[in-house]
């Protein structure tokens, strides 16, 4: 592990990654080191132990995130309660409406549960354990609880920007888009990948990201919107002719794209010379 001055020759900031995380000074940079030379005095700790230092830091650092998030969630709840006890609408205070009370109660539950997890995990870390499992659970739960709490607080404050503009809440990823946050984060990962047309695989460096890829697979394998059939036969009885016959008979509603260089049509559908030439658009049933 080294400390390298930013103006050291050979060190270049290739780009500042445009991240949702706006809460860090300087942002997340991609750094390129080209023949950078530094002296012994730049070494932090012992040589060859950098990765270990970084990893030791990971568990507790997760908890500092959680503490920060808990603070933001707590502050959001306070703002919401302040708003709910002051704002009068349709003849009563917001806080007297059952649905608002439920939002506040749900926030209290999320806050209390987050706090309890933090206490327990930190005690585990203090006892010297690595606490991998507990820190993972805590980070996942508290980050999601934060989303829920702020979201509910926004519902209580309505369109007023004063919650969203509050400095505490501004450290949230994409705080300015908070009211829309829920929807966008849910759809972004899959949408992105599909739009790029990039690999959508079950394997990711040996790891298997289960639900996202599996759901994508489910949709693409079992719910395709178009089906091209390479080598499709005009004869509905032949092995390569049957699928089109079945698709028509059982009522498949998507596009059927026969690919057969020898024919103009296959079982009454216009055929394409090869898959590259298929437009998919002209074929509709």
């Amino acid at each position: 592990m080294f400390l390298v001055d930013f103006d050291t020759p050979g060190l270049k900031e290739a780009r500042v990654i445009d991240s949702l995380d706006e809460g860090y000074f300087g942002g997340h940079s991609e750094l390129v080191f080209t023949d950078v030379e530094i002296g012994d005095e730049a070494v932090l700790g012992e040589v060859d132990l950098g990765l270990r230092y970084a990893q030791v830091r990971l568990g507790p650092a997760r908890m500092t995130h959680c503490m920060r998030w808990l603070g933001v969630a707590q502050r959001s709840q306070e703002i919401a309660i302040e708003r709910a006890t002051r704002r009068e609408i349709f003849g009563s205070k917001l806080a007297e409406l059952g649905m608002v009370q439920q939002l506040i109660a749900d926030n209290e539950i999320d806050l209390e549960a987050s706090r309890a997890l933090l206490y327990r995990t930190c005690a585990e870390l203090d006892s010297g354990a690595t606490a991998t499992r507990s820190t993972s659970i805590t980070k996942t739960f508290v980050s999601e609880a934060l989303g829920r709490v702020v979201d509910r607080a926004v519902q209580i404050c309505g369109a007023l920007r004063h919650l969203v503009r509050h400095p505490a809440v501004q450290v949230l990823p994409g705080a300015s888009a908070l009211p829309r946050l829920r929807r966008t984060v849910r759809s972004a990962p899959l949408g992105d990948r599909a739009a790029r047309g990039g690999p959508v695989r079950g394997h990711d460096g040996g790891r298997y990201s289960m639900s996202g890829d599996a759901r994508l697979l489910l949709d693409r394998l079992l719910r395709p919107r178009s089906i091209a059939l390479i080598g499709a036969s005009d004869n509905p009885v032949k092995l390569t002719g049957r699928p089109i016959e079945y698709l028509k008979r059982f009522g498949y509603q998507g596009r059927i794209i026969p690919v057969n260089p020898a024919r103009e049509t296959v079982q009454g559908l216009p055929a394409f010379r090869d898959i590259a030439a298929s437009t998919g658009r002209s074929i509709s049933r």
Binding site: L222, R223, L229, L247
Partner: peptide, 14 residues
């Protein structure tokens, strides 16, 4: 796949 009648097979069971 029954829901959308996706029968991409040559199985004579159909």
């Amino acid at each position: 796949a029954a829901r959308d009648a996706v029968t991409v097979t040559f199985s004579s069971s159909l």
